[in-house]
Computed example of a mutant assay.
Amino acid sequence: MSPVSPVLVTGCAGFIGMHCALRLLERGCPVVGLDNLNSYYDVALKQARLAQLQPYPGFRFVKLDLADRQGLAALFDEVRPQRVLHLAAQAGVRYSIEHPDDYTDANLLGFANLLQCCRRHQVQHLVYASSSSVYGSNAKMPFAESDAVDHPISYYAATKKANELMAHTYAHLYSIPVTGLRFFTVYGPWGRPDMALFKFTRAMLAGETIDVYGNGQLVRDFTYIDDIVEGVLRVLDKPATADAHFDPLHPNPATSSAPYRIFNIGNSTPTVLLDYIAALESALGITAKKRMLPRQPGDMQSTAADTRALQAWVNFAPATSVGEGVRRFVDWYRGFFGAQ
């Protein structure tokens, strides 16, 4: 694999995409970053993330929507990437209930276009973002990649499950090494404004009441961004291979006779939402005013990651504590927004 071949990073102005692109650039790897800069949340934050990447001479930004089939094909013809890190998607569980068409266009049509380009250019590895939301109404904890994921409870989750099926088809038909990563509630500096930590911090600093869904008893496997990036890049460096022990009579959904893998990336430390808020209260030195509300449609009660497969594959498992991760986020937030 040529070290000078650029990695194509889709969603490079997004939370995880910016961090992964930055780490690649710091390693001396050229990056072509693609993003459509949509207005799902403040575009100024996306531009500020891009500003972290643009000083690197190995970085090139292309504004493009994955739904633009011809535009994407032309970009692949020009760049000819050997590795593709696909982090672009329409995110948000609750938003998908009100705006399903956005998810169809970005997460299904966009991913189909990307797979076709990867097929035409026989990329050496495609790594793409799936989500812990695919586990849906599963109740067995922790979630393992070998578990069935046939009961999503949001359209967002359904699109991510569909991505895994589409990816397997291309791995099987065209021998494209493809790895899907199920992220578990990612948080940290430069995070998304629609995520709980960002919303809680903004409201608490303004003296406003925070909305606490599930009466504070929802459980999430909060995973710090630096751990996500480390896992993503280690996986990117190790292309998926066929599982020599795959048994079609007892198929494991996480592997295949094709070069296809699925891995969880989570902290393996499920945390009750009220404890997460307590860590934020400690970092801010502010006691939150809470409005307790029922769980919203599409929200899972609990998530917890079994990461043994990831650890066996790339010798890594996330380990940043919630207390430490929240403190780092607060430090970034105060620095970026000038909050006291």
Rank of each mutant, 00 (worst) to 15 (best):
D211Y: 03
A196H: 04
A196Q: 04
L165K: 07
D211V: 08
L173W: 01
G188E: 05
T209A: 15
M166N: 06
Y187Q: 06
V178M: 07
A203P: 03
M204C: 14
R220N: 05
K199N: 10
P189V: 13
V186M: 12
D211E: 12
A171W: 01
Y170T: 03
Y170A: 01
H172C: 05
S175K: 11
F198Q: 08
M166W: 04
M195S: 10
Y213I: 11
L181I: 15
Y187P: 03
I176T: 05
R202S: 11
L197E: 07
F198P: 00
T201C: 12
Y170Q: 00
K199Y: 05
A196S: 09
L165P: 00
Y187D: 07
W190T: 12
A167G: 14
L205A: 03
Y170M: 00
R220T: 04
H168M: 12
H172Q: 11
E208A: 13
S175Q: 15
R192N: 15
A203F: 05
Q217R: 05
R192Y: 05
F200V: 10
P177T: 02
L181E: 12
L205K: 03
M166Y: 07
N163P: 02
T209S: 14
R192A: 14
T209Y: 06
A203W: 06
D194E: 15
G180R: 00
L181H: 09
A206H: 12
V212G: 02
Y213T: 14
T169S: 14
S175L: 04
G207W: 13
G216D: 02
H172N: 03
M195D: 14
V178R: 01
Y174A: 07
G191F: 04
F198E: 08
Y187A: 07
R182A: 10
T209G: 06
L173C: 02
E164D: 14
G207C: 12
L197T: 08
G207D: 11
T201A: 11
D211T: 09
